[in-house]
């Protein structure tokens, strides 16, 4: 493994750990400043939950 590859891998691991950490903080029912910020970050990254389309509506004609 080259030094460059090792550095790249370390950065990727750091990024992945950070993502999990931020996501975990957003999964709380109890509001704290940290969880609020985390949820906002998750929403910024992933966007608004899409409305379900008619395909999910069992009253629609198939």
């Amino acid at each position: 493994m080259t030094v460059l590859t090792r550095v790249k891998l370390t950065l990727e691991e750091f990024r992945a750990r950070t993502l999990v950490s931020v996501a975990n903080r957003s999964f709380t029912s109890k509001q704290t400043p940290a969880s609020w910020v985390s949820l906002k970050l998750v929403q910024l990254l992933l966007g608004k939950p899409e409305e379900l389309d008619a395909d999910f509506d069992h009253s629609s004609p198939m």
Partner: peptide, 21 residues
């Protein structure tokens, strides 16, 4: 209904929404 956290909100299918039935 689908989850309110966008990390999971797409994870639903029409079998799930049929659960009350």
């Amino acid at each position: 209904r689908q989850h309110d956290n966008p990390a999971f909100s797409k994870h639903i299918c029409y079998k799930g929404t049929a659960a009350p039935h």
